[in-house]
Design a protein around this nucleic acid. Structure first.
Lengths: 204, 204
DNA sequence: TAACTTATGTCACCCCATGACAAATGACAA
DNA sequence: TTGTCATTTGTCATGGGGTGACATAAGTTA
């Protein structure tokens, strides 16, 4: 008869993980991403540098980890959208609920989200990693869209649709405000523009 | 009364630069990008490792340098487009002439172009850098498009247009063939799809 | 040829990242 | 509680990427 299932061990791991992320984010924002060393981050959490790399594969990963979380939320939201929605509808609605989730969920989590956005704006060296994440997510999105459109992932039109969808999200996120609420507003405005530019049924 | 202007010094520099690029590309393709070390590249050209970093800021930069060249061609082609063309027209035509330039220009240069494309397809660690380049170019493209549309660079519609234009190019280049000629064909097919999806005047 | 400028090599150094091994710590059953 | 086991952690050693400093070699110019 297992209760919470999570033992002390697992809880400790989660705690150091969060501690590493928070320490890293604060150091990055205070001192600058490039200058801050992994040793400093580890020291701030009172952990050996080697341990840091057992939690995160790279310095970049710890910085972008809240991003990754948001992306996972988005992807599960997208998978939960009914199958009769068009790719465009499904993606936009999933995006809306994702931002709303961040806005209304754990404040600490939302705080990290905002911090990462602030950090990325002032750190060109992180753009590469961010773009890489987007590219990966785009590959997964392609499968989802191909399913909804009933084509192969190699279909040129499907690839175009995916790229445009990613683009809409990117226009929002890239230069938008940091806080979830105004970000959601920008999202609506971007969607309005997209719908003025695209022919009805373009994504079918 | 200056003649060729380029002295022995400058010629030598160009030669080692090219030699480094070619040696790097061949090593990367033969052994793999991640495994190949800068020391190996430098040794292949009979140059000190320190000198390598005087030519290229990073191992990534030497790999992507032909890409960068192509992008510069594109940007000068774009700047040369008449001002009365819409952003979409200007970008697509600049893209066409760029690919044609690569196809019809120096075979050695085209060869490097093809090699880089082959390399990128099998090297995930290079995607980040490539995406970063695209992001940078997108920022410059934004200024050009803002000029043509007569808006500020912060204009949301302008940002949307830029993203869609970048997207069209990316759909082409990302999963397309390596050789310039078939790539040009894929470009035309992508353009056709884009025009079926977008409302006339969407980029104005 | 001499003086100057610039590229190169050598050296030292820091940071990121990883494998190996031993020590510490939580999990679990007797 | 105690002993055993599994997992996490720290320490150590190693290698590659990347940079500053300085002396030397090589091209440039008078």
């Amino acid at each position: 008869m297992k209760m919470t299932t999570v033992g002390l061990r697992e809880r400790k791991k989660q705690k150091t993980r969060i501690a590493l992320i928070d320490a890293a984010l604060d150091l990055f924002l205070a001192e600058g991403y490039d200058i801050t060393t992994v040793d400093q981050i580890a020291a701030a959490v009172d952990v050996s540098p080697r341990t840091f790399f057992r939690y995160f594969a790279s310095k970049e990963e710890v910085a972008l980890s809240p991003c990754r979380d948001g992306q996972e939320i988005f992807e599960s939201e997208l998978a939960a959208r009914p199958g009769d929605e068009s790719p465009y509808q499904a993606v936009m609605r999933a995006m809306r609920t994702t931002l709303a989730t961040v806005r209304d969920g754990d404040p600490a989590e939302a705080d990290r989200f905002v911090k990462v956005r602030r950090l990325m704006k002032e750190t060109p060296s992180l753009i590469a990693g961010q773009m890489c994440m987007i590219a990966q997510s785009e590959r997964r999105l392609t499968e989802e869209v191909a399913r909804r459109r009933g084509t192969d992932v190699d279909d040129l039109h499907t690839q175009f649709v995916v790229s445009v969808l990613t683009t809409i999200n990117r226009v929002c996120l890239e230069h938008g405000p940091d806080d979830p609420a105004p970000l959601l507003e920008r999202m609506e405005r971007t969607i309005a523009i997209a719908e003025r530019c695209l022919r009805p049924g373009w994504d079918r």
